[in-house]
């Protein structure tokens, strides 16, 4: 694997303005606050967290689909080098073909009035990547067969396809412009387990075949464990832990990561009641608690956690954790 990052977020913050008063500071929601991650070229990077943790916003900011308030995202693929915060109109258009998104719901993401061929061809036409209709058709057929779609079915409409096939159509559309970086946002969450396994295997195969870099956003840790090389855990807009997959799952350091892992229902019926339960819910980002954002639910919180926000510290090779007590808790 190439260790040079293809894309990296550097102290990235995404704030959204709230309606406020005429006087006084403008209130805002920090959807993502001071997050730095590096995604190595050719890797499968997982991003996990509960709803409201900011994982989708981070993914979108890395596609320049969410506003970058502070910090920056750097993209460097050997041909171009972009700072996403200061991207001209022409560069942004070029970036769009290098970075693409696969959505969660294959039923909502495909227009029911377009044939599969037109759906897959649309990015090519919009971006002006092909010169003739024959060339477009060729590209569409090529990518469709790569995504294991039957090329005989390209003239059909999406309603004729099952969930798994629809997700393959979404994948083909994301890949047709020849991107280097793909954000897959909960791309298998709406699928049955057997179809989910099929789509995950397809994503992995395509990634290796085409040398792609993936940001894989999911709330399902067991899926992430199976497909990702590296994982970042988010909570309330902050990065709380990041590590190579094996290290994170065998040796989680942050109490939140530990709680997430133990909340996954085990397949062993005799394992009942062993899970370490997390009380309460994720706080509203409009009114985050002081200090460590996880302190309101953390079973290990002490006074220091309620005042001082922890910063990321190194906890092993490529392993970082933001917790005041990780050292004493891991003894």
């Amino acid at each position: 694997m190439n260790e040079r990052p293809l894309i990296s977020a550097q102290n990235l913050s995404v704030h959204y303005a709230l309606r406020g008063n005429l006087i006084g500071p403008k209130p805002y929601v920090a959807a993502v606050e001071n997050v730095s991650i590096e995604i190595a070229a050719g890797s499968f990077f997982g991003l996990v967290g509960e709803s409201g943790s900011g994982k989708t916003t981070l993914g979108r900011a890395m596609l320049r689909a969410a506003p970058i308030t502070k910090g920056d995202v750097l993209f460097e693929d050997g041909e171009v080098s972009y700072s996403l915060k200061n991207l001209g109109k022409k560069e942004l258009k070029d970036y769009r073909k290098r970075a693409q998104l696969i959505f969660q719901d294959p039923y909502a993401a495909l227009s029911p009035r377009m044939t599969v061929r037109d759906i897959i061809a649309e990015p090519l036409e919009v971006m002006g990547l092909t010169k003739s209709r024959t060339e477009t058709d060729e590209r569409v057929r090529e990518i469709a067969s790569k995504c294991r779609l039957n090329v005989e079915h390209l003239r059909r409409f999406p309603h004729a396809f099952s969930g798994g096939q629809r997700q393959r159509i979404s994948i083909a559309r994301a890949l047709v412009s020849g991107p280097k970086f793909i954000v897959a946002d909960e791309s298998v969450a709406a699928l049955d387990v057997s179809i989910q396994a099929d789509v995950l295997n397809l994503l992995k195969a395509i990634q290796q075949e085409m040398g792609l870099t993936f940001l894989f956003i999911s709330h399902d840790l067991s899926v992430v464990a199976h497909v990702c090389d590296h994982v970042a855990v988010m909570y309330l807009g902050r990065l709380v832990e990041t590590a190579p997959t094996r290290a994170l799952f065998s040796n989680p350091r942050h109490p939140y990561t530990k709680a997430l892992l133990s909340a996954i229902p085990s397949l062993d019926p005799d394992d009942r009641g062993k899970a370490q339960k997390l009380e309460g819910e994720i706080p509203s980002p409009t009114n985050p608690p002081p200090g460590c954002k996880f302190q309101t639910r953390c079973p290990k919180a002490i006074d220091r956690c309620r005042v001082e926000e922890p910063v990321l510290e190194s906890a092993g090779t490529e392993h970082f954790v933001a917790c005041h007590r990780w050292k004493e808790l891991s003894v």
Binding site: I195, A197, L200, L221, S222, A225, H226, L261, L267
Partner: peptide, 13 residues
């Protein structure tokens, strides 16, 4: 089903 105790096991659809 992806299993947490054996993350290297292939997923068989």
């Amino acid at each position: 089903l992806p299993k947490l105790d054996d993350i290297d096991a292939p997923l068989t659809p």
